[in-house]
Each structure stands twice: as structure tokens, then as C-alpha cells.
């Protein structure tokens, strides 16, 4: 029993779930138990959007130091507009719209990788430059877009089974798949190896560049999918719809125990981190604090959590 607990405590993702449970308890203690279940349902729904981009960001960050996708917010915004325009409020076009959003995300991911590869610049700057361009395309393409999502698609993002949102269940299945890809497939093992030592990976004969290309493309596609789902959930596309997912995607990855230095990824932690962030905001909203205090506390808690979790020990 104690050994099992000790083993559990050594898992890096356990802390993010503990944190999520703590803020949830604090919130329902404040409301004296009122709305505890509803809070969880809402948190699961909202976490989905962070988890989807978080998984993409996690694969990118795992590629090694400096790898990060800063173009996600612009990518999500553009994909949401593309999805709404293609679906055009028609239920029969949902699949086509989703495919179009995925394609739009794929284009963003491919553009990111081409900039990194052709210019040999740090991914931070490459994806930043790409995000400027994508944002402009979105502003120009999505100007005055007032299209509502098809009713069937909007309902789909809100279906609940015994209080559990359907998209949350699907996303859990997706993350299990991502976990298998990470730990049991050549692709995931290659990503980890590249993140641990890119030179060694190259010398060991791994196809480093195709793997990096694939990773940025997947991250872009996940951003595109997220944009479509967000537009369905929030009833419409919008340039700023992805704005908060830049910080959120990086934060959940790191809170969840993935190493910023690369080479060490953690899938369950992405869920823990996302639930923690969403429940934290829910808790602060329940307390009825002002926007300034909410931001201040969010920041302080993120810093406190990362300090308590501590950084990875340097391997020498």
C-alpha cells in the first residue's frame, strides 16, 4: 500500500491532479457544496480545448530546447473561421468543415516547419513570424464573419452522458492514443530521443527532420481541430478565439510534468494541468474576485506550483 502510494507520488503528473482537486474542493467549500457536479462538467468541457492543443504543444516542446509553437492562437483563429465558412450553418457540411479546419491547421504547421528548416532559425522566432502572417490572413478572411455553427455540430459539442461531456470522453480516448504513440510507437520514441540529444539521435540513424516535420504538422492540425470545436462550442468564429491558448498550452504542458528542456513527456499531466487551470479560474470566479485579483492570483499560483514541483535535476 505504502509502496503503491510512493510509486504514485513519484509520478510527475500526480501533482497537477492534486492541485486540480484542491482548487475544486476550495471552490465547493465556498459554495457549501452547491454546484459541485456542474463545476466539474463545465471544467471537463473547457479543459478539452486546452488538452487538444496541449498535446500538440507537448510533442513540439519534447523535441528539445527552444522548440515551441507560438503560432497556435493565430492558427486556432483562422481554423475557426475556415470551419464556420465551409460548414455555412449546414449540418451536412460538418465533416467537410472539420476537414477544412484540419487542412488549415496542417498548412500552418507545415509553414512553421519550413521556416525553421529553411532559415535555421529558433522555432520561437519562426513560429512567431508565421503567426503574424496567419493572423493577417485570418483578419482579412474572417472580417465580419457572422456565421453560426450548424445546429447539429453545436449540439454535439454540448452532449453530456451522465454529466460527462461527450467531447471530454472522446478527448480522453484521443489522449490514450497519443500516449500509445508517444511510448509504444517508433514516432513517439523518436521524438523523445531527439529531445534528449538531437546529435545522438541523428548519429543513431533516426530520421530527425521528417520527425520534426511530422510533429509541427500534427501540432498545427490539432490547433485547427481545436479552432473548429471552439467555434462550435462558443457559437461562432472570432479572430481572438485562440488568444488564451498560447499561455495555456505551454502552462499545462509544464505543470503536467513535461520537461521544458525536452526529451521527457507526460500525457496524463496535460489533463491534470488543464483541469487545474480551468478549475482555478472557476474557483476565483466563485469567490467573486475582480479581474485584477484573478490575474494576480492565477500568476502567483502558477509560480508557486512550478516552484513546489521543482525543476528537473540536471543530468550529467
Amino acid at each position: 500500500m505504502i509502496a503503491a502510494l510512493a510509486k504514485l507520488a513519484s509520478k510527475p503528473w500526480i501533482w497537477s491532479f492534486l492541485g486540480a482537486a484542491l482548487v475544486w474542493l476550495a471552490a465547493i467549500a465556498f459554495t457549501a457544496g452547491y454546484g459541485a457536479g456542474g463545476m466539474l462538467t463545465a471544467a471537463l468541457s473547457l479543459s478539452v480545448f486546452t488538452v487538444i492543443v496541449g498535446v500538440g504543444q507537448m510533442f513540439v516542446i519534447t523535441l528539445g530546447p527552444g522548440n515551441v509553437d507560438l503560432s497556435l492562437p493565430a492558427n486556432i483563429g483562422l481554423a475557426s473561421a475556415v470551419a464556420m465558412k465551409v460548414m455555412d450553418g449546414d449540418d451536412r457540411m460538418v465533416a467537410v468543415g472539420l476537414a477544412a479546419a484540419l487542412a488549415s491547421g496542417l498548412c500552418a504547421g507545415v509553414a512553421n516547419y519550413l521556416l525553421i528548416w529553411a532559415l535555421r532559425i529558433p522555432p520561437i522566432i519562426a513560429t512567431l513570424s508565421a503567426s503574424f502572417v496567419i493572423q493577417s490572413i485570418d483578419i482579412s478572411y474572417g472580417r465580419g464573419l457572422q456565421i453560426k455553427p450548424p445546429p447539429g455540430f453545436a449540439d454535439f459539442t454540448n452532449i453530456q452522458i451522465l454529466g460527462v461531456p461527450l467531447i471530454a470522453v472522446l478527448t480522453v480516448l484521443f489522449t490514450i492514443g497519443a500516449g500509445i504513440a508517444l511510448h509504444r510507437m517508433v514516432y513517439g520514441r523518436s521524438v523523445l530521443a531527439i529531445g534528449q540529444n538531437i546529435r545522438a539521435a541523428r548519429l543513431a540513424g533516426l530520421k530527425v527532420e521528417p520527425i520534426r516535420f511530422l510533429t509541427y504538422s500534427i501540432c498545427g492540425m490539432l490547433g485547427g481541430l481545436d479552432g473548429a470545436l471552439l467555434a462550435g462550442y462558443f457559437r461562432g468564429a472570432n479572430v481572438d478565439i485562440g488568444g488564451e491558448y498560447l499561455l495555456a498550452s505551454i502552462a499545462v504542458v509544464v505543470i503536467g510534468g513535461t520537461s521544458v528542456a525536452g526529451g521527457k513527456a507526460n500525457i496524463p499531466g496535460v489533463w491534470g494541468g488543464a483541469l487545474f487551470l480551468v478549475l482555478l479560474l472557476t474557483m476565483l470566479n466563485t469567490f467573486g474576485v475582480s479581474a485584477g485579483v484573478r490575474l494576480l492570483l492565477t500568476g502567483l499560483i502558477i509560480v508557486a506550483v512550478i516552484t513546489a514541483a521543482g525543476g528537473q535535476k540536471t543530468t550529467r
Binding site: I250, V254, V260, G299, L300, I301, I302, T307, G310, G311
Partner: peptide, 12 residues
């Protein structure tokens, strides 16, 4: 604490 500066400054 050997922390990733990206996350700490993100919080800040």
C-alpha cells in the same frame, strides 16, 4: 530550484 524561466515568467 532549477526552474524553467519560460513558465515562471509566464506566471509573472
Amino acid at each position: 530550484r532549477n526552474l524553467p524561466s519560460i513558465v515562471v515568467t509566464l506566471g509573472m
